[in-house]
């Protein structure tokens, strides 16, 4: 494994950890306080965490000039964004 791949993996790991930690805290706060707003934001942030992960990987691959996999990652990002668009029209 190249060190550049390892670096990208560490950044992805950090993004996932941050997303899970913040959404987890919001969900716990919502359950303890019996408040809907933190629950809503916690669930939304949890769903957005994998999207941020794809974004991080895409940027990393573009910076690495790995055009083939950057294109693959961009396509996945496009499918996720189209899901957000469709959900807004339901």
């Amino acid at each position: 494994m190249t060190s550049r791949v390892r670096t990208l993996e560490r950044i992805v790991e950090a993004a996932l950890t941050a997303g899970v930690a913040v959404s987890g805290l919001l969900l716990v706060a919502g359950l303890v306080l019996g408040s809907t707003a933190p629950l809503w934001w916690g669930v939304l942030l949890l769903i957005l965490t994998p999207v941020v992960r794809v974004l991080v990987v895409t940027v990393g691959l573009i910076l690495d000039h790995d055009w083939l996999f950057a294109g693959v990652s961009l396509f996945v990002l496009g499918v996720l964004l189209s899901s957000v668009y469709v959900s807004g029209r339901l």
Binding site: L16, G30, T36, L39, W40, V43, L44, I47, L48, T49, P50, V51, R53, V54, V76, V79, L80, S83, V84, V86, S87, G88, R89, L90
Partner: peptide, 19 residues
């Protein structure tokens, strides 16, 4: 995570998520 997010937005948008 990514697979789930692709359809979770739809459930969230339809109001099927019991918070």
């Amino acid at each position: 995570g990514v697979t789930g997010a692709a359809s979770a937005f739809l459930y969230f948008g339809r109001g099927d998520v019991a918070l």
